[in-house]
Write a protein that binds this DNA or RNA. Sequence first.
DNA 1: AATCACCCCAACCGCCCACCC
DNA 2: CGGGTGGGCGGTTGGGGTGAT
Length: 344
Amino acid sequence: MGRSPCREEISGVKKGPWTPEEDEKLIDYITKHSHGSWRTLPKRAGLNRCGKSCRLRWTNYLRPDIKRGQFTEEDERTIINLHSVLGNKWSKIAAHLPGRTDNEIKNYWNTHIRKKLLKMGIDPETHKPRTDLNHLMSLSQLLGMSNLSSVMNSTWGNNHLGLQQDINQLAKIQLLQNLLQLMNSNSFVNMGNPYLFGNPNLNPLFLNGINPLKEPVVLSGSERFANPSVYSQAQSECSQQQDVSKSLAIAQDPDYSKISSTNTYHSHENQEENPLPALVAASPRMGTLNPMGSGCGNLAQTSEESPSNTFFDDWEKLFDDERSGSYWKEILELTSTSASPIMW
DNA sequence: AATCACCCCAACCGCCCACCC
DNA sequence: CGGGTGGGCGGTTGGGGTGAT
């Protein structure tokens, strides 16, 4: 049972943007007397506003410890990492970014990060490759354009051959990624599948500088997850689902145990499926498509398991093998090791 | 110069939960 | 135990700013 937003509204309190005079009154009053009861504050401070409006104005804008200005790349990475585990728990995310408000982070997510991830072909809700029809359609259109470009090259010269290859590779990679995602959601068991989970190049957590096999999570400015036993306990709690994301959530969120019994914990609904490569560049020529800055985009140097030089080399090799037939064979071999049959 | 479309973000809305009486 | 209240939360809105036409 909720309550009406502002009872004072009935008596015609002011709404809308705050004036500098109102701000001054509010700051002056709170610095002298602290806010006390928000409901009675407007009267005490001589403001024609509802208490809730005063509280929001103070916490989101006037508080002296508010950090203004652009989000740094590190901020952005932290937000993405935390969002992948916590979901839209903006206040929890804000707790890891001193001086930033939940409202500010929420706005930044919706206006910047969300779009960036969508452009990358990543679902901002699940942090996994998009599998929705529209996106797949656009990819198939991309492939169609690529083929058209190929025809044009053969007709009018090969000036655009490089671009055409890039588009082609990008579309193929994205399509394969989506295909794997679909298979993955049905049958893959990540923890037992080193190809996906154990490979630093293929796990989103590794991509963000986190090794989920060695440490719970690395979050700037936080030591909440420094206790390995908490994480391992969380992991064992989730062993049936083999869901590392759930483990992370439990390790991080002291409220999880309360919520988990109801089976409504937000991020878990999204994390039921297994993670797949989060970021894919079209080809080395196009450079790394890295939405989060330099800190997490260097996929090549972290590889210990692949004989190839880079993550992209692996993918390119895979696509090169397409012609020899081993491309699909490799996928089929991969899927045949999983527990249950693939539903096509 | 005028109009339009889109973007951004402060502020609002409505729901929920914890606490108090 | 139940109702009322304070405060917190996530989602949404609307108006100003800006770039494109």
